[in-house]
């Protein structure tokens, strides 16, 4: 009996968020960040701040943190002070539930909400240099901290929705995320090891992109590979998937800005 079949059989029996973890999930002791699947050179590039290209975005983000913006002429620092203390551990808890929206928001959306509501500035476009830089700077303040998104009555329906998308076969190739990242991690796809899909280091500098990119960009890449129509940036589906993946990666350390092949 395959893992995929087990999940289908068991999922309807899940009664509450206490039962979110299923028997077919990757056991906690076997959970490994993508950095453990890559070569020693890429690992060394990530671990040395002088060679990690993502640090260039972090430096940009540090400058942006102190820059006054918008009609309110306020900087992030005007409200939040030193990011080293105020943002410590924050990225490890995102996406987080926003009471006003009634649903989880990811770090990029949270930054743009601050821009709109506090700075009275226009939101930054997805994948823009400016948004990636601020997200990388905030994310950097959680490096080494264990991922711990809220797992409670408010977030449970969204984690469950993300899992449903993760396990749904999609596209012309009729594959689910779980087909590779739950059932076949560690095996080789076109010569490269399939990782477990833990979003430990976003925004991530991906050598294939030759730039920094968001988790939503990465999710869209996989969808395109499956020949499925990718979810648009900022959609509920993408944020639910992000939340499920972060819940699934609970306990693993944040590596932002990570480097990946």
């Amino acid at each position: 009996m395959t893992a995929a079949f087990l999940r289908v059989a068991i999922l309807p029996l899940v009664a509450g968020f206490a039962s979110l973890a299923l028997a077919a999930d990757i056991p906690t002791a076997e959970r490994r960040s993508g950095s453990e699947f890559m070569g020693p050179e890429t690992r060394a590039m990530q671990d040395d701040d002088t060679t990690n290209p993502g640090m260039l975005w972090v430096l940009d983000g540090e400058a942006a943190w102190r820059r006054r913006e918008g009609a309110a002429d306020k900087s992030c620092a005007d409200c939040h002070g030193y990011a080293q203390t105020s943002m410590n551990g924050v990225a490890a808890r995102y996406p987080a539930f926003d009471a006003a929206k009634g649903r989880p928001v990811d770090l990029e959306e949270r930054i743009n909400m601050c821009r709109s509501e506090q700075q009275k500035a226009t939101p930054l476009p997805f994948e823009s240099q400016a948004l990636l830089a601020l997200t990388a700077y905030v994310g950097r303040q959680s490096r080494g901290q264990a991922i711990a998104v809220a797992d409670d009555a408010r977030t449970y329906p969204f984690i469950a929705a993300g899992r449903e998308i993760f396990e749904r076969r999609q596209g012309q190739l009729d594959l689910s995320c779980a087909s590779c990242h739950d059932d076949n991690w560690g095996k080789k796809l076109a010569g490269a090891p399939v990782p477990q899909a833990h979003p430990t280091g976003y925004p991530t500098y991906r050598l294939e992109w030759q730039t920094l990119g968001s988790l939503q960009r990465r999710l869209r890449n996989c969808m395109i590979g499956m020949r499925a129509e990718p979810y648009a940036y900022g959609t509920a589906e993408n944020v639910d998937l992000e939340l499920y993946l972060m819940w699934r990666a609970r306990g693993l350390a944040i590596e932002t800005p990570a480097v990946r092949p």
Binding site: T2, R169, Q170, G171, Q172, L175, C180, N184, R227, E229
Partner: peptide
Amino acid sequence: PATIMPSYYRTEGLTRVAPAF
């Protein structure tokens, strides 16, 4: 039914196929 082998000559029963395909 649980195989990951795509069906190379089937167009029915698929979900959210990209418009080009």
